[in-house]
Measured scan of single mutants.
Amino acid sequence: PPDDERKKAEKAARSGNEEKAREILERLGYSEDEARELAKRLR
């Protein structure tokens, strides 16, 4: 489910793995720019 994926992205971002967070968010349908912004904010 998307919620689980989003949680994974948050966890990745918090542990400093912004790249992985961005990949997950892009898979969820965010654009590259949106995903980058979100990954930064989740950190």
Score class of each variant (00 low, 15 high):
residue 25 L to G: 00
residue 11 K to G: 06
residue 39 A to Q: 01
residue 6 R to D: 03
residue 6 R to I: 15
residue 26 E to L: 15
residue 19 E to I: 12
residue 41 R to G: 02
residue 40 K to M: 14
residue 7 K to P: 04
residue 31 S to A: 05
residue 36 R to C: 03
residue 25 L to M: 02
residue 36 R to V: 05
residue 25 L to Q: 01
residue 34 E to Y: 07
residue 22 R to I: 13
residue 6 R to L: 15
residue 35 A to H: 02
residue 21 A to T: 04
residue 4 D to E: 14
residue 3 D to T: 11
residue 18 E to G: 04
residue 25 L to H: 00
residue 17 N to Q: 09
residue 14 R to M: 11
residue 22 R to G: 01
residue 7 K to W: 12
residue 18 E to R: 03
residue 25 L to E: 01
residue 35 A to V: 03
residue 18 E to P: 05
residue 24 I to R: 02
residue 8 K to W: 11
residue 28 L to T: 01
residue 3 D to I: 11
residue 31 S to G: 06
residue 32 E to W: 06
residue 7 K to C: 13
residue 2 P to I: 14
residue 33 D to K: 11
residue 5 E to S: 09
residue 7 K to N: 10
residue 7 K to H: 10
residue 30 Y to L: 09
residue 4 D to C: 12
residue 11 K to H: 14
residue 14 R to S: 06
residue 30 Y to I: 04
residue 33 D to N: 09
residue 5 E to G: 08
residue 9 A to S: 03
residue 14 R to T: 06
residue 25 L to N: 00
residue 29 G to H: 01
residue 23 E to C: 15
residue 37 E to H: 10
residue 43 R to A: 14
residue 35 A to D: 01
residue 23 E to A: 12
residue 21 A to S: 05
residue 1 P to W: 14
residue 36 R to P: 00
residue 1 P to G: 14
residue 1 P to T: 15
residue 21 A to R: 03
residue 26 E to D: 01
residue 15 S to F: 08
residue 15 S to Y: 07
residue 42 L to W: 15
residue 7 K to Q: 13
residue 43 R to W: 14
residue 42 L to I: 07
residue 32 E to K: 13
residue 3 D to H: 10
residue 15 S to M: 14
residue 35 A to I: 06
residue 35 A to F: 03
residue 27 R to T: 06
residue 38 L to G: 00
residue 11 K to A: 15
residue 8 K to S: 09
residue 22 R to K: 06
residue 25 L to W: 08
residue 12 A to Y: 15
residue 29 G to L: 00
residue 20 K to G: 08
residue 17 N to F: 10
residue 18 E to A: 07
residue 28 L to K: 01
residue 36 R to S: 05
residue 8 K to G: 05
residue 15 S to R: 12
residue 43 R to V: 09
residue 40 K to R: 15
residue 25 L to A: 00
residue 42 L to E: 00
residue 16 G to D: 05
residue 38 L to H: 02
residue 26 E to K: 15
residue 30 Y to V: 02
residue 20 K to M: 13
residue 39 A to F: 07
residue 31 S to K: 05
residue 32 E to H: 11
residue 7 K to F: 10
residue 27 R to M: 08
residue 28 L to C: 09
residue 42 L to Y: 15
residue 30 Y to W: 05
residue 34 E to L: 05
residue 40 K to S: 11
residue 43 R to K: 09
residue 23 E to S: 08
residue 41 R to W: 10
residue 38 L to M: 12
residue 41 R to P: 00
residue 9 A to N: 02
residue 36 R to W: 08
residue 4 D to Q: 12
residue 20 K to W: 11
residue 8 K to V: 09
residue 23 E to L: 13
residue 24 I to A: 03
residue 24 I to V: 02
residue 40 K to V: 06
residue 34 E to H: 05
residue 42 L to P: 01
residue 1 P to M: 13
residue 2 P to G: 12
residue 22 R to Y: 05
residue 5 E to R: 08
